[in-house]
Simulated assay, not measured.
Amino acid sequence: MSSLDTVLAAGRRAAEARMRETVRLYSQAADSFDRASGQTVPGAKADLYTGKARVKAIAASTGQETEAGEREIVLREYEVQLPWATTLPSGTRVLAGMRIEVTASPDPRMVGLILWVTGASFSDQSTVWRIRTEDRS
């Protein structure tokens, strides 16, 4: 093991120690409309990862106001950090539009937060797997 590998391993352990939230990464099929009930039926969800993470607001993000449907929403950016060695089911990649739900956190206000994936970065010299997301509430 090279000195770089030793330093990266220590950094990855330290980064994992800061992961205090539990999240669920999932994809969701398109919603459908049930004519009989007149209701929109949410698409099926496929869980890709459930486990520890660190969820942090991006400091430079002030929130962008935009319109969705007939209501105003504010987009706030978050970075979700997963353990570097996290693997997904074979053939699956993190794609924009997937979602991350915070299922547990020391900050109870974060529980239930749904974040929409906007991108992910990969690097063999990272200490965590960083996924860019936005809160569309």
Rank of each mutant, 00 (worst) to 15 (best):
R99T: 03
G112A: 04
L113E: 06
W116G: 03
L95A: 14
D135F: 11
R93K: 02
G11T: 01
S61F: 12
V94I: 05
A15P: 09
E65I: 08
G43P: 15
A68K: 12
M110H: 04
E16I: 06
S123C: 13
A46H: 13
V117M: 04
W129D: 03
V128W: 11
G119Q: 03
R35V: 14
V74K: 11
T133A: 03
V74A: 02
V128A: 12
V102C: 01
V55G: 07
Q28G: 13
P89M: 10
M98C: 08
A17Y: 03
A9P: 04
R12L: 09
W116K: 05
V111R: 07
V55Y: 07
M19F: 06
T133S: 07
Y78C: 05
A57R: 14
S105M: 15
D124I: 05
A59N: 09
L88W: 07
R93F: 03
R13E: 14
V55R: 06
E72G: 03
S37M: 14
W129K: 00
I131V: 13
I100G: 01
V7Q: 12
D34I: 12
R20P: 01
Q39E: 11
R132P: 05
R71H: 04
Q39P: 02
V7S: 07
R24Y: 01
A120C: 08
M98S: 04
V7E: 05
I73A: 07
P42R: 05
G69C: 08
R71Y: 06
A60I: 13
D135Q: 12
S123G: 15
S37Q: 15
A17V: 11
E72Q: 14
G69F: 12
A57H: 15
V41M: 12
S37T: 15
V94W: 00
P108D: 14
R24I: 01
D34W: 13
S2V: 04
Y78M: 09
T103I: 12
V128S: 14
R24W: 02
S32F: 11
E21D: 14
